[in-house]
């Protein structure tokens, strides 16, 4: 299963859409996008996860890497993760690194 990544940045907000399977083999692609985002630097990073079916440990660790690289002032949002992905993030304790949103909520993200 492949991973599709698209990314856009506007007004300090980086939106990264992930679709398919994120695993150790393709995690470096995700890491490159996170590194690009960190270089801006943004005010927020929004991960649009509605079409991400699987995220392995390596994928979760990229989020953690991004959080540590960008610092506590840059919020990372996980929008519409599937239940399985959301649960894996929660159980492994990575939920402290990001904020879950059911939909893209501009009033929260762009505030």
């Amino acid at each position: 299963m492949t991973l599709t990544i698209t990314s856009e940045a506007a007004a300090g907000i980086v939106k990264i859409t992930l679709a398919g399977h994120l695993n150790a083999a393709n995690a470096p692609e995700f890491q490159r996008e996170i590194e690009k985002a960190a270089a801006l630097p943004p005010t927020a990073v929004v991960l649009l996860l509605g079409e991400l079916e699987y995220m392995s440990s390596a994928g979760l660790r990229i989020i953690l890497f991004g959080k540590q690289k960008m610092g506590p002032k840059v919020k990372i949002y996980a929008v519409a993760p599937l239940a399985e992905v959301r649960e894996t993030i929660r159980l492994s304790g990575f939920h402290h690194a990001l904020t879950f949103l059911e939909t893209y909520d501009a009033s929260v993200i762009e505030a």
């Binding site: 392995s56 440990s57 979760l60 649960e87 894996t88 159980l91 492994s92 304790g93």
Partner: peptide, 16 residues
């Protein structure tokens, strides 16, 4: 003992 053990994330779950 980890719900995430099947994903190899038992160390993270236990540290949490």
């Amino acid at each position: 003992y980890a719900r995430t053990g099947a994903f190899g994330m038992e160390a993270d779950e236990f540290k949490t």
